[in-house]
Design a protein around this nucleic acid. Structure first.
Lengths: 224, 224
DNA sequence: ACCTGAACACCGTTCAAGT
DNA sequence: ACCTGAACACCGTTCAAGT
């Protein structure tokens, strides 16, 4: 409505605004279905056909939003792991996994969109490295724990695969089953690190709850 | 079109036919979005308003289809575990987990619908036991492995929670990431049983591939 | 070069009417 | 008691037209 008409070469600005609007709608509603063309263009102050000057269809726009989500998630987990590296390889692995669960909890709609199996083509980058950036970081952190001698031996890729499946399962199930008596994320992650990675209990850094109360039950409930 | 008009009390028959049609569409397309009212009623040979005589809205119908899916999944895993019980508690746990992954692979659309977080109200039965029937079975099988002395001690509910998250993560990720180099399901499940449940390698039953080639890599790649 | 108005075939749902 | 015909407000997308 109050949008000033774009002049030459300003089309790229609208393109970015449309992506921002779609991301905002996805974050607010947590549901890809409510991210409609009309809602997106409404936020940008244009009419529906204007969107098709910048994207061939809705699917392509959503795919670009999802790509941004991957970048954000990968950056967030990598940054958390890096910040904890001074406390050791186990602490870095732990921090990365907690950051992963935290991101999924803060951005449920965006996280869901990342793993929507209905998207026909796989979401891979042009350079082929694609969506596995976050996974590669996880593999590296597992290998670092092994190199530090704190874990059992074994293929770090295989171990990271199980960790990824478990943290993805936790991320989605905690969102889909809010009546289930979920233990705190720290306990779940510690359980995975102790068992799947094979880190003895004494190697685990003590919980430093960041704005959360400490675990109600001791984590020794998993390993005796 | 060729549908013969229902006489007194035959409304219940249409109700069942609508549920069957919705389940069929969900299974065929693997996408809840293509299960439209018009597609459902078309398969039953009636017009859209007829559906509203039996269901208040689409959401309620889908919810009932999802309930059937829960029953089927729970029955399938329980039956597989029971069949393997003669081979021991570990074999029963393993068979149940493999049956879970197998059901999810054979029914991707239905499995997705089971854990769709967009459903506002939690899917629980009137009796309150609800969707946790399958989970309770998993807890029992973990406890049986512990009782047989084959696993580490620890809260079986906590262990089952991690197993459930991992198998759910594997089920959804294998469907969403078909370019990822997934190891065979048997290897993944064995890895989880060895590490999360803490079963020593020699306790594991040897793979009896049912219509699948044996694992390419030895499962010892996880545990040294 | 960039955007709009009007229309298309869809969707879930409702409501009056038919038998 | 059970179902239909016609309509409502939506949706993604297209196409001619405006500046």
């Amino acid at each position: 409505m109050a949008r000033t008409r774009s002049v030459r070469g300003e089309g790229a600005r609208l393109r970015g605004e449309l992506l921002d609007a779609a991301e905002r709608l996805l974050a607010e509603h947590g549901d890809e279905r409510s991210v409609t063309i009309r809602a997106i263009v409404g936020q940008a102050g244009v009419t529906p056909p204007a969107l098709y000057l910048h994207f061939p269809d809705k699917q392509t726009l959503i795919r670009e939003v999802v790509m941004r989500g991957y970048d954000d998630l990968a950056r967030t987990t990598a940054a958390a792991a890096k910040d904890a590296r001074d406390a050791g390889a186990v602490a870095a692995l732990r921090a990365g996994m907690l950051a992963y669960l935290g991101w999924a909890e803060r951005h449920p709609g965006r996280y869901r969109a990342l793993f929507d199996a209905r998207r026909e083509t796989q979401l891979l980058r042009a350079d082929g490295t694609g969506t596995s950036v976050a996974f590669d970081g996880l593999v590296a952190r597992v290998a670092a724990v092994q190199a530090a001698g704190a874990a059992r031996a074994g293929d770090p890729v295989r171990i990271a695969t199980l960790l990824w499946a478990a943290e993805h399962g936790l991320a989605t199930l905690r969102a889909a089953r809010d009546r289930f008596p979920w233990p705190p994320a720290e306990e779940l992650v510690d359980g995975l690190i102790m068992t799947v990675v094979g880190v003895p209990v004494e190697e685990l850094p003590t919980s430093e709850p960041v704005g959360r109360e400490p675990p109600a039950r001791s984590r020794s409930s998993l390993v005796s």
